[in-house]
Design a protein around this nucleic acid. Structure first.
Lengths: 231, 231
DNA sequence: AAGTGGTCTAGACCACGTC
DNA sequence: ACGTGGTCTAGACCACTTT
């Protein structure tokens, strides 16, 4: 007979257990990779893989020479999948549809202009109502930098929403997302079929390609919307 | 002279470049690990490290036998750091303080009872107001399963908030987070020093240790709060 | 200066999923 | 059945940081 082969997952689980059982407490220095490799009878690379994973998950702090410590404040990271609205609606088992409410090039208001940069020509402004079944789901107001994505001017956004079109046709390198709550304005209330002042979940997103702004968008979700995730 | 040593980071950057330049388009099958290793003159493990990273980031879909493809819908993942409220406030450069508004064991209402499970004894109910400077920042209402964390009954929560105490003393294995928007109720408005119906950013969180519920909490942020992240 | 994690290599076997 | 990614090994050198 022989010992079972050690996998990095099993090592990850064991270290995880030692932390949650309090064998290794927050702030504690845990044994080095060589030592653990000897204890578990595996290669150092395997130990490294397991500990690196735990560090990425926020359970360990690792520093060369200083060694590996159990994280003082186990910062839990919640990851949200930013997917296409159509898929999000369909995953709820509802029928998705969308309607372009407006679509025109125009001079943006000052705050938008500031983000876009002065050198950018007039962007395309598109507003879309996304629907789940026959109910309003989300109201999208979007500015698109046509200097970066000129082909959007020729796209038929009634077939594919701007949301989806951009995901597939305009790659971006970085982005910023803000989540907040807002009271529905009169026009938002009308579009989302709710009452003035209703609490609206809002997502503001800016995406860049290199140093150029690609698009600036505000998503206003109909009351009752929840964004959820596991951690 | 000799070629520079290939690192997984440089390979990651190169593949990333080929995707954003459209050399490899969404849905395309890219060369296998062995082939790429030959092209770049490095070990297969190095290629694997780079491609695995890209897959984790959502740019590639990898499946045994089927090979590696450029993701059809580059699902961008936004990661939110769920940190301690005190640290969040202090990072804004403000002075943190908190006040325990109530603290007692009591029978929970039906929805909470349902999540806790019928077998659990009466939980501890704690409400806390977190402040930034002299302004209300967030109102926390929390149910704590004392069967799992009996020591919380002896904790002095006026020194360390329940939020922080639990992070350091009650490790959990899994959790669920929901983000939503709500109109302030009369009592919430009073506590957060705002008006009835103001839009409140709400976080609902349930955490488990194995199959036991550890705590159920609702965080109601004062108007103006934004949760932001980069992607 | 020295110790610890970070990474690369070359080779091997395995697991999964497509064919 | 077989091809592709997933992982392990043993050894080596390197980079960062603390002492």
């Amino acid at each position: 007979m022989s010992a079972a082969r050690i996998t990095w997952q099993s090592l990850h689980a064991e270290v995880s257990r030692r932390i949650s059982n309090g064998i290794w407490k927050p702030g504690d220095l845990i044994p080095g990779e060589v030592e653990l490799a000897a204890e578990f009878g595996c290669a150092r690379a395997t130990v490294n893989r397991a500990l690196r994973q735990l560090a990425e998950e926020g359970f360990l702090d690792r520093r060369r020479k200083a060694g590996t410590r159990v994280a003082l404040h186990p910062v839990r990271k919640a990851t949200l999948d930013i997917s296409i609205t159509r898929l999000e609606v369909e995953q709820k088992g509802l029928v998705y549809s969308h309607e372009i409410l407006s679509r025109k090039r125009k001079a943006p208001p000052a705050p938008i202009r500031k983000i876009l940069g002065a050198a950018v020509g007039n962007p395309l402004f598109v507003t879309t109502l996304h629907q789940a079944g026959t109910n309003p789901f989300m109201y999208e107001t979007r500015w698109i930098n046509t200097d970066v994505v000129p082909s959007v001017l020729k796209a038929d956004l009634t077939l594919i929403s701007a949301n989806e079109w951009l995901v597939e046709n305009a790659l971006f390198t970085t982005g910023e997302i803000k989540f907040s709550a807002a009271n529905a304005t009169e026009s938002e209330a009308k579009i989302l079929d709710t009452e003035l002042g209703a609490a609206i979940f809002v997502v503001d997103r800016i995406t860049w390609n290199g140093s150029d702004v690609v698009t600036i968008v505000r998503l206003a979700y109909a009351p009752g919307y929840e964004m959820s995730t596991k951690i």
